[in-house]
Protein backbone atom coordinates (compact mmCIF):
# COMPACT_ATOMS: atom_id res chain seq x y z
CA UNK A 1 0.00 0.00 0.00
CA UNK A 2 1.58 3.25 -1.10
CA UNK A 3 1.51 6.14 1.36
CA UNK A 4 1.69 9.77 0.34
CA UNK A 5 2.97 12.81 2.13
CA UNK A 6 2.88 16.38 0.87
CA UNK A 7 4.98 19.18 2.36
CA UNK A 8 3.92 22.71 1.55
CA UNK A 9 5.22 26.12 2.50
CA UNK A 10 6.92 29.25 1.23
CA UNK A 11 10.22 29.27 -0.67
CA UNK A 12 13.04 29.62 1.85
CA UNK A 13 11.34 27.81 4.77
CA UNK A 14 13.32 24.59 4.32
CA UNK A 15 10.65 22.28 2.91
CA UNK A 16 13.07 20.70 0.44
CA UNK A 17 15.70 19.82 3.04
CA UNK A 18 12.99 18.35 5.28
CA UNK A 19 11.73 16.25 2.37
CA UNK A 20 15.22 15.01 1.54
CA UNK A 21 15.76 13.83 5.11
CA UNK A 22 12.35 12.14 5.16
CA UNK A 23 12.99 10.40 1.83
CA UNK A 24 16.41 9.16 2.98
CA UNK A 25 14.86 7.82 6.19
CA UNK A 26 12.12 6.01 4.29
CA UNK A 27 14.74 4.41 2.04
CA UNK A 28 16.63 3.21 5.11
CA UNK A 29 13.39 1.75 6.45
CA UNK A 30 13.33 -0.44 3.35
CA UNK A 31 10.59 1.27 1.34
CA UNK A 32 10.56 2.09 -2.34
CA UNK A 33 10.49 5.91 -2.25
CA UNK A 34 9.80 8.66 -4.73
CA UNK A 35 10.02 12.33 -3.98
CA UNK A 36 9.14 15.18 -6.30
CA UNK A 37 9.94 18.81 -5.86
CA UNK A 38 9.70 21.81 -8.05
CA UNK A 39 12.23 24.54 -7.61
CA UNK A 40 13.49 27.40 -9.67
CA UNK A 41 11.36 30.50 -9.83
CA UNK A 42 9.16 29.44 -6.90
CA UNK A 43 12.18 29.81 -4.65
CA UNK A 44 11.77 33.56 -4.63
CA UNK A 45 9.12 33.75 -1.93
CA UNK A 46 6.56 31.72 -3.87
CA UNK A 47 4.35 28.87 -2.75
CA UNK A 48 6.27 25.57 -2.82
CA UNK A 49 5.41 21.92 -2.38
CA UNK A 50 7.29 18.65 -2.29
CA UNK A 51 5.64 15.29 -2.51
CA UNK A 52 6.83 11.99 -1.09
CA UNK A 53 5.34 8.59 -1.87
CA UNK A 54 6.52 5.34 -0.31
CA UNK A 55 5.53 1.69 -0.19
CA UNK A 56 6.49 -1.65 -1.69
CA UNK A 57 6.58 -0.33 -5.28
CA UNK A 58 5.89 3.27 -6.26
CA UNK A 59 5.26 4.37 -9.83
CA UNK A 60 4.23 8.04 -10.07
CA UNK A 61 6.01 10.55 -7.84
CA UNK A 62 2.93 12.80 -7.98
CA UNK A 63 0.08 12.73 -5.46
CA UNK A 64 -3.49 13.08 -6.70
CA UNK A 65 -6.10 15.14 -4.90
CA UNK A 66 -7.69 13.41 -1.92
CA UNK A 67 -4.75 11.02 -1.65
CA UNK A 68 -2.24 12.44 0.81
CA UNK A 69 -2.08 10.57 4.13
CA UNK A 70 -0.34 13.55 5.66
CA UNK A 71 -0.33 17.22 4.66
CA UNK A 72 2.56 18.93 6.45
CA UNK A 73 2.17 22.68 6.09
CA UNK A 74 4.89 25.12 7.08
CA UNK A 75 2.46 28.04 6.85
CA UNK A 76 -1.25 28.44 7.55
CA UNK A 77 -2.50 29.71 4.21
CA UNK A 78 -0.50 27.12 2.33
CA UNK A 79 -2.42 24.45 4.28
CA UNK A 80 -5.64 25.86 2.86
CA UNK A 81 -4.17 26.13 -0.64
CA UNK A 82 -3.20 22.45 -0.73
CA UNK A 83 -6.03 21.06 1.43
CA UNK A 84 -7.61 19.29 -1.55
CA UNK A 85 -4.65 16.87 -1.57
CA UNK A 86 -5.52 15.50 1.87
CA UNK A 87 -7.35 12.19 2.25
CA UNK A 88 -10.68 12.40 4.06
CA UNK A 89 -9.16 10.52 7.01
CA UNK A 90 -5.69 12.05 6.56
CA UNK A 91 -3.72 14.09 9.05
CA UNK A 92 -3.02 17.78 8.71
CA UNK A 93 0.06 19.02 10.55
CA UNK A 94 0.16 22.79 10.37
CA UNK A 95 2.69 25.30 11.61
CA UNK A 96 0.98 28.15 13.47
CA UNK A 97 2.82 30.72 11.40
CA UNK A 98 1.89 33.46 8.94
CA UNK A 99 3.94 34.73 6.02
CA UNK A 100 2.32 37.60 4.16
CA UNK A 101 2.74 37.44 0.38
CA UNK A 102 3.50 40.62 -1.56
CA UNK A 103 -0.11 41.24 -2.65
CA UNK A 104 -1.05 41.14 1.07
CA UNK A 105 1.87 43.38 2.04
CA UNK A 106 0.86 45.96 -0.52
CA UNK A 107 -2.76 45.80 0.60
CA UNK A 108 -4.19 44.39 -2.65
CA UNK A 109 -5.23 41.11 -1.06
CA UNK A 110 -6.28 40.10 2.46
CA UNK A 111 -4.78 37.45 4.71
CA UNK A 112 -7.77 35.67 6.23
CA UNK A 113 -8.15 35.75 10.00
CA UNK A 114 -9.25 32.58 11.76
CA UNK A 115 -7.43 30.38 9.22
CA UNK A 116 -6.39 27.93 11.92
CA UNK A 117 -9.86 27.69 13.43
CA UNK A 118 -11.36 27.02 10.02
CA UNK A 119 -8.81 24.31 9.30
CA UNK A 120 -9.46 22.67 12.65
CA UNK A 121 -13.20 22.62 12.16
CA UNK A 122 -12.84 21.19 8.63
CA UNK A 123 -10.20 18.52 9.21
CA UNK A 124 -10.80 16.31 12.27
CA UNK A 125 -7.18 15.14 12.38
CA UNK A 126 -5.52 18.53 12.62
CA UNK A 127 -2.33 18.88 14.62
CA UNK A 128 -1.22 22.46 15.23
CA UNK A 129 2.49 22.90 15.95
CA UNK A 130 3.94 26.21 17.04
CA UNK A 131 7.14 25.33 15.18
CA UNK A 132 8.38 28.86 14.61
CA UNK A 133 7.83 29.79 18.26
CA UNK A 134 9.59 26.62 19.43
CA UNK A 135 12.43 27.24 16.96
CA UNK A 136 12.78 30.83 18.15
CA UNK A 137 12.98 29.66 21.75
CA UNK A 138 15.67 27.16 20.78
CA UNK A 139 17.61 29.97 19.19
CA UNK A 140 16.88 30.27 15.46
CA UNK A 141 13.60 30.42 13.55
CA UNK A 142 15.27 28.61 10.65
CA UNK A 143 15.12 25.28 12.50
CA UNK A 144 11.31 25.33 12.42
CA UNK A 145 11.62 22.79 9.61
CA UNK A 146 13.27 20.30 11.99
CA UNK A 147 10.51 20.86 14.57
CA UNK A 148 7.98 19.99 11.87
CA UNK A 149 10.05 17.02 10.74
CA UNK A 150 10.00 15.66 14.29
CA UNK A 151 6.24 16.12 14.47
CA UNK A 152 5.71 14.42 11.10
CA UNK A 153 7.94 11.45 11.93
CA UNK A 154 6.05 10.93 15.18
CA UNK A 155 2.64 11.17 13.52
CA UNK A 156 3.69 8.82 10.70
CA UNK A 157 4.74 6.27 13.30
CA UNK A 158 8.30 6.16 11.95
CA UNK A 159 10.26 6.77 15.15
CA UNK A 160 11.94 3.38 14.85
CA UNK A 161 14.95 4.76 12.95
CA UNK A 162 18.08 6.72 13.76
CA UNK A 163 16.83 10.01 12.28
CA UNK A 164 19.50 11.95 14.17
CA UNK A 165 22.28 10.38 12.11
CA UNK A 166 20.45 11.25 8.87
CA UNK A 167 20.01 14.85 10.03
CA UNK A 168 23.74 14.92 10.77
CA UNK A 169 24.51 13.64 7.26
CA UNK A 170 22.53 16.43 5.66
CA UNK A 171 23.79 19.36 7.75
CA UNK A 172 27.17 20.91 8.54
CA UNK A 173 28.45 19.98 11.97
CA UNK A 174 28.08 23.43 13.51
CA UNK A 175 24.30 23.23 13.03
CA UNK A 176 23.86 19.73 14.45
CA UNK A 177 23.03 20.57 18.05
CA UNK A 178 20.42 23.21 17.22
CA UNK A 179 18.69 21.08 14.60
CA UNK A 180 18.62 17.93 16.73
CA UNK A 181 17.14 19.94 19.61
CA UNK A 182 14.47 21.21 17.24
CA UNK A 183 13.75 17.73 15.89
CA UNK A 184 13.30 16.32 19.40
CA UNK A 185 11.10 19.26 20.37
CA UNK A 186 8.90 18.45 17.37
CA UNK A 187 8.52 14.83 18.47
CA UNK A 188 7.48 15.93 21.95
CA UNK A 189 5.06 18.53 20.63
CA UNK A 190 3.21 16.09 18.38
Amino acid sequence: MTKSLILVGVGGQGTILTSKILAEGLLQLGFDVKMSEIHGMAQRGGSVNTQIRFGEKVYSPIISSGEADVLLSFEKIEAIRYLNYLKPDGTLIVNDYEIYSLPVLTGNEKYPKQALEMLKSTVPNTVVIKASEIANNIGNIKVQNMVLLGAAVKRLGLLDLDWISIIKDYLPERFHELNIKAFNAGINEA
Partner: peptide
Protein backbone atom coordinates in the same frame (compact mmCIF):
# COMPACT_ATOMS: atom_id res chain seq x y z
CA UNK B 1 -12.71 11.56 -5.35
CA UNK B 2 -13.68 13.03 -2.01
CA UNK B 3 -11.61 16.06 -1.22
CA UNK B 4 -11.52 18.71 1.46
CA UNK B 5 -12.25 22.24 0.45
CA UNK B 6 -12.25 25.43 2.46
CA UNK B 7 -14.34 27.94 0.62
CA UNK B 8 -12.60 31.14 1.58
CA UNK B 9 -10.56 33.45 -0.62
CA UNK B 10 -6.86 33.03 0.10
CA UNK B 11 -4.11 35.37 -1.02
CA UNK B 12 -1.96 34.50 -4.01
CA UNK B 13 1.75 34.00 -3.45
CA UNK B 14 3.63 34.91 -6.62
CA UNK B 15 7.44 34.72 -6.58
CA UNK B 16 9.00 38.11 -5.86
Amino acid sequence: RTVYALDIPIPTRPPV
